[in-house]
Design a protein around this nucleic acid. Structure first.
Lengths: 191, 191
DNA sequence: ACCTGAACACCGTTCAAGT
DNA sequence: ACCTGAACACCGTTCAAGT
């Protein structure tokens, strides 16, 4: 939908602002999303922002909604059809290591859970991911209660690993260490 | 003569500001720590803040340092001497369920990892907790590499569980569900 | 339909002046 | 040694006026 226009065009749509917001979030986190800085980036004055959105919160929500609809469902579409839970768990962890924009946003959102709008979104995302993990564990032979617990543990270990791995100052895993760790997780968690 | 109806004393120390900061963080999160609001709470003007601290960042760091020195080491002192790793893991998870101020701060910090000062602190905290988990797993018979992986997985599941459990909109576990979950985690992770 | 530019409120920060 | 009160900068928000 991007018209082949000059980079310094000054006529924008709400979608342009949302894309810009997601870029800022991916690069510098949710806290760095500022209307004035974003307006500078888009070569307009901050006043024009308010023709498109009621306020900063509305932009954040619209941007997060766009991310959930596009990137997030795209990721799920890739992982969900994997029938074997061992392969599925590995696919989830593998995604963490990749530097795709979608994961940078996911990581940024995990670090900004003190924003109510982020919490609401992440509640949906977490529930969805745990649900299909639980389904996989049932296919793999666990009963309903065990599958529920195991999916919670799996998703928690996934979220927690991202937190640990993305915390500055903590040594990041090498490629070999990461593979060995994922092997260990798979052997420990997958029946 | 003393004016009798003045509500609180108006002579403060740096420590008073740090305690007030930790209260605000526990109640409303790191993002809600504002000098003006805190000054109102302490019945002084915001100008006086700058006699005690260079800026907001310095207050945040001093408050976090105080938390690490007091509450955090206190928690560790309770958990660290538990020899049996099964009991130790359970103790860690049990702490999550309690509503002590220290845990509210720990949870608030987990939700504000986009602040560099918080990241630096949490890197230390994570490393310390993983180190003594790894020691416990070695005592329990795992080799060094396995103990390292297992401690990472254990701490990740602990951090991730807090995240999931504290996300608004997600159904919180009942007391029975929590116990059953901790049983499941213990059986799955502890050799 | 979208943008500018001036205005205002809020909060972090500075500083001279108070006790 | 600690605080006040006025000032300024920055950013979110509003709005009348521009194209």
């Amino acid at each position: 939908m991007n018209p082949p226009s000059k980079p310094e065009r000054t006529r924008l749509t709400a979608e342009d602002w949302e894309h810009g917001a997601l870029e800022m979030i991916a690069e510098e986190g949710v806290g760095a999303l500022a209307i004035e800085a974003l307006a500078r980036r888009l070569n307009v004055t901050k006043g024009s922002f308010y023709w498109h959105f009621r306020n900063r919160e509305a932009l954040l929500q619209a941007a997060l909604q766009r991310w959930e609809n596009n990137d997030e469902t795209e990721v799920l579409a890739k992982i969900e059809p994997i029938a074997d839970p061992r392969q599925r768990l590995r696919a989830m962890f593998d995604f963490v290591a990749r530097e795709l924009p979608s994961h940078r946003i996911y990581a940024a959102l995990l670090m900004a859970l003190d924003h109510p709008a982020v919490q609401t979104l992440m509640a949906r995302v977490s529930e969805r991911r745990m649900d299909f993990l639980a389904a996989a564990y049932r296919e793999a032979g666990l009963d309903a209660a065990q599958a529920q617990h195991r999916s919670r543990l799996t998703y928690a270990s996934y979220v927690g690993f991202m937190q640990i791995n993305m915390t500055l100052g903590l040594p990041r895993l090498s490629h070999e260490e990461f593979d060995a760790y994922v092997d260990h997780v798979t052997e420990t968690l997958v029946p």
